[in-house]
Design a binder for these strands. Structure first.
Length: 719
DNA sequence: ATTTTCGAGATTTTT
DNA sequence: TCTCGAAAAT
């Protein structure tokens, strides 16, 4: 108990021991959010004697869940099962594994990832004689996504009955969607949205099931709550309805996922959802120097839609934040790399301590080139992932074939290595499967002696799968995989290909499964393992050690680094021009929060860099408005930003959509009566933010005139 | 007619 | 770096 509270300040202690009821902790960057959460969990277990299986703790990423489990285990002892420290989706899978059988789905439903969805759609397109391009794919997927919230859709998916068209508009898209849903139902597939939607329907349709889970979960905790969307919030609210213990942690200033449905209102207006809720503020920053904090604070203050909170710190003073202005990208990159070498040599910093953050992935390019030139090791995060690799997907498909025998896995591996089952024979199988209502694999078994399947190695494939299936129960997942790759000839196939890297990857996969078995208990069911695996994306930061880390600001969320370079701080990149166009003020504020998140990752030193030149479309580059919004005495500028350019930049920013608050305050609202030195009196009809003009109807003119908002000699007429 | 090449342009990402 | 479309080459 003592131990649980050491190293915590008063408000953190309060947050830990405040155990009953609805509690929100509004905690700024670097204030120990995760610490409060882990310590509270440990407090519940150690001091109050609550079983971990009665505590649900949800996070957004597996990585966060993993980190949380690690830290909790340190405090409560490693023996205990912390399985309910998980992601929203992970939790839904657990619920569905227990209760989805109430629907027509089997316990071993298949979780579809994006690639699976693409495969299904591609098949449909091929059948229709069409080609599926990325744009169409996205559009259809979008439309399907919209349907997922529709109860009618879910109700159809959970019954044995055939699908009824959702609308009879009959345009090509809806036909395709109809076919898609039919296919999805046939493979017992659930996509990521379905996991949450089905859980909802399950809870609504079967109050007993909901009751069971409510009973079980005495305490519920939510991390990064400002990023939860309606469904996630609703799920938490439902589960907490019985015991009324919901404890959420978040920072509204770090909401950076509104564009994918997150709504900070669940955090900000927590009190209105739960009137008896309590609020605890954690506003001491333990991460950054006062200088870094001052700069970040001065930026975020410009947001209007905001719960006001100023972060403070008692940390030692450090270096002033630096803004570097370069003449072009190469100069910017060069300066950054020089600075890094400086840090490495003069300050004995290690490469691990340095991070380079940017708005969009393509911005890493120039930095990369410069780093290569100077021979500095680096790692880029957020590129391709281990589990996205072809050979890994194939290997997993073998396992899925043993466990589920689903059409998707079948199509993936039946002809790898070549078994003479190409397009034509696949087509035959698909037709037969459709007619007989069987899976592709069962169809293959049934028709293996059919003339159309002669001179194929179908029988060997069937033998391999059957023999593996018979041993499923008595073997560990890792052993099964090893055997599968041997027996089907897949390993030999990769070996012959001569690609050592692929072989190594397969070995690594085996290794990771063994590790998984060791942590989760060796008798883990194959089916469950596969479902968890689909939800798992590795974005393990410890990948390569002692390298400079490059990543987007989004990826850096929740992380901290002693030295941070926030690069490419160019107007229209950060803030991004498309965000400004699409989402107006809300967009601008989210971009500002993004910059804030980037800055507050830094512990010791923060560098903001940007450069002149031209970007796509020949648009001249100017420093980001966020640079100009910072307190001038809070940072130091390096590089010459001449007055002319600065003036030009500020004009440009004013003219671009989303003029800053100062300009708004200076401007006049719609309907204001004004006097113009030439045109005389008139009324402001419209305000065009893009062109930075008013549209004014003058009493003496027939048509309205656009007048610049910067025009100083426009007087307001008092009434 | 079909493939290849070359240059320009680029949100952000998890489950 | 990756993707997409137009122009060039087969």
């Amino acid at each position: 108990m003592e131990e649980l509270l050491t190293g915590l300040n008063e408000s953190q202690q309060q947050a830990v021991m405040e155990t009953e009821g609805y509690i929100r902790v509004i905690a700024g960057a670097g204030s120990g959010k995760t610490k409060a959460l882990t310590h509270r969990y440990a407090f519940l277990v150690n001091a109050l004697g609550i079983e971990p299986s009665n505590i649900l703790c949800v996070t957004f990423t597996n990585k966060a869940a993993h980190e949380m489990r690690r830290r909790v285990k340190k405090l409560i002892g490693g023996e205990q099962d912390t399985g309910f420290i998980t992601t929203y989706h992970g939790f839904c899978v657990r619920v569905l594994r227990e209760d989805i059988h109430r629907f027509f789905y089997p316990k071993n439903f298949v979780i579809l990832d994006v690639e699976d969805q693409k495969t299904l759609l591609r098949e449909i397109f091929e059948d229709l004689g069409l080609k599926l391009n990325d744009k169409t794919f996205k559009r259809i997927l979008d439309k399907i996504g919209m349907l997922k919230g529709n109860t009618h859709y879910v109700n159809q998916m959970i019954t044995r009955d055939a699908m009824v068209p959702l609308d009879d508009a009959g345009d090509l898209d809806s036909q395709i969607i109809q076919l898609y849903l039919k296919k999805q139902k046939r493979v017992f597939g659930l996509d990521f949205d379905d996991l949450i939607n089905f859980t909802f329907v399950l809870f609504h349709k079967y109050p007993k099931v909901l009751g069971k889970w409510q009973d079980r979960l005495f305490y519920i905790q939510g991390d990064e709550f400002q990023d939860s969307n309606e469904k996630q919030f609703e799920l938490m609210r439902m589960l907490a309805e019985k015991h009324h213990n919901l404890f959420v942690v978040g920072d509204p200033d770090q909401t950076i996922y509104e564009w994918r449905g997150a709504d900070p209102k669940y955090m900000v207006e927590f009190q209105s959802f739960f009137p008896d809720a309590q609020t605890i503020f954690l506003n001491q920053n333990y991460r950054s120097t006062p200088e870094i904090l001052a700069v970040s604070n001065s930026l975020i203050k410009h947001n209007v839609f905001r719960v006001d909170k100023e972060m403070i710190t008692e940390n030692q003073e450090g270096l002033k934040v630096i803004h570097y202005h370069g003449k072009d990208e190469n100069e910017e990159a060069k300066w950054i790399v020089d600075k890094i070498e400086d840090l490495l040599k003069k300050k004995q910093a290690s490469k691990d301590e340095i991070a380079i953050l940017y708005r969009a992935n393509y911005l890493s390019r120039f930095i990369e080139q410069a780093l290569i030139k100077e021979n500095i090791d680096y790692t880029i995060f957020g590129g391709f992932k281990f589990f996205d690799r072809m050979e890994i997907k194939d290997a997993i498909a073998h396992l899925r074939m043993i466990a589920f025998g689903d059409d998707l896995s079948f199509a993936r591996i039946v002809n790898v290595p070549k078994r003479q089952i190409g397009k034509k024979r696949m087509q035959f199988l698909r037709e037969r499967a459709e007619a007989d209502g069987l899976t592709l694999y069962d169809t293959l078994k049934k028709y293996v002696d059919h003339p159309r399947l002669q001179r194929t190695q179908a029988q060997q494939f069937i033998d391999a799968i059957e023999s593996l299936r018979s041993r499923k129960k008595d073997n560990h997942v890792s052993e099964l995989l090893q055997d599968a790759l041997q027996r089907t000839g897949y390993e030999a196939y990769i070996r012959e290909d001569g690609d050592q890297e692929r072989l190594d990857n397969l070995t690594e996969l085996l290794h990771s499964i063994v590790q998984y078995e060791q942590t989760m208990g060796e008798d883990i069911e194959l089916e469950e393992y596969l479902q968890m695996l689909t939800l798992y994306t590795d974005n393990d930061l410890e990948g390569k050690s002692n390298t400079v880390k490059l990543m987007t600001i989004h990826t850096a969320k929740g992380l901290e680094f002693p030295y941070v370079f926030l690069v490419g701080m160019t107007e229209s990149v950060l803030p991004n021009v498309r965000t400004l166009r699409d989402r107006k003020e809300r967009g601008l504020e989210e971009e500002r929060r993004l910059a804030y998140v980037g800055m507050t990752r830094a512990e010791k030193e923060l560098y903001l860099t940007e450069s002149e030149g031209y970007q796509s479309g020949g648009v001249k580059k100017y420093p980001s408005r966020f640079i100009f919004e910072l307190d001038e005495d809070a940072y130091q500028r390096i590089g010459i930003l001449d007055e002319e350019l600065e003036k030009e930049a500020k004009e440009y920013i004013k003219a671009a959509y989303g003029t800053d608050r100062v300009a708004n305050e200076q401007g006049h609202p719609k309907g204001t009566k004004v006097r113009h030195p030439v045109f005389g009196e008139g009324v402001i009809e419209e305000i065009d933010h893009k062109k930075n003009t008013y549209l004014i109807y003058f009493d003496n003119l027939k048509a309205p005139r656009p007048i610049s908002r910067n025009f100083k000699r426009l007087e307001v007429i008092d009434q």
